[in-house]
Design a protein around this nucleic acid. Structure first.
Length: 205
DNA sequence: AGCACGATTAACT
DNA sequence: GTTAATCGTGCTC
């Protein structure tokens, strides 16, 4: 449904609020007219040049320019020589901040996802940021894409809100050489309880 | 121009 | 728990 696409004002808020509220929403990629995606179940917030865990700690560069732009766009980057990472730009234009999408619960386009994640069991299809981009065929080609335009092939739809009792908050993952206090900031949000996920899937079907 | 390393993953001991 | 894979980016010389 086009009218269920999250509007720009959803992204135009503090990073922590957006990261938390993205849990339960549906990440959708359109490929040749086919929907591929699922429910967002894990996110992390990055933002501000003071955040030494954020790429924008180096200021505005060619790679990070999207983060400095208006909210509601995709910030995508390549790392470890082989993995793409999907982020959503948040907060006001000129204010660098983004949300890393770390895990989703696949619900649509399962045939394509299974194909691309062939050697892994369904549980491991999209339980990591690099895996999501592999499963949904996301790479540099989608850098800077506007997530608020229905005609574009990447956007997020409103889903069922995950109650606080099912949300786990903790430190961000993989910031091994980042100094404190940034390394331990509790800016990771994880939706727990399979029951909730399954209910949400059914409710949205 | 060269270099160290990363918001990771999968395979292995 | 440990480690190889693999290359764009940002920093130093």
């Amino acid at each position: 449904m086009k009218d269920s696409i999250l509007p720009r004002k959803f992204y135009d808020r503090p990073a922590l609020s957006v990261a938390r509220d993205l849990l339960g929403a549906r990440l959708i990629r359109i490929e040749d007219g086919q929907r591929v995606g699922g429910i967002i179940i894990e996110t992390e917030a990055y933002g501000g040049e003071q955040d030494l865990g954020c790429h924008c700690r180096s200021g505005r560069t060619e790679r990070t320019q999207a983060m400095y732009g208006p909210p509601g766009h995709a910030y995508i980057y390549f790392t470890y020589g082989m993995h793409w990472m999907l982020n959503f730009v948040v907060e006001a234009d000129g204010n660098p901040a983004a949300i890393l999408i770390r895990a989703i619960h696949p619900t649509e386009g399962l045939n394509l996802i299974a194909e691309r994640r062939a050697k892994q069991p369904p549980k491991r299809w999209t339980d990591g940021p690099g895996k999501i981009c592999q499963a949904l065929n996301i790479d540099k080609g989608l850098y800077g894409v506007d997530l608020c335009i229905p005609d574009n092939n990447l956007f997020v739809e409103k889903g069922s809100r995950i109650p606080d009792s099912n949300v786990t908050i903790g430190p961000r993952v993989g910031l091994n050489t980042v100094p404190e206090p940034w390394k331990s900031k509790p800016w990771r949000f994880l939706a727990s309880m399979e029951d909730t996920i399954e209910d949400t899937t059914t409710a949205n079907a």
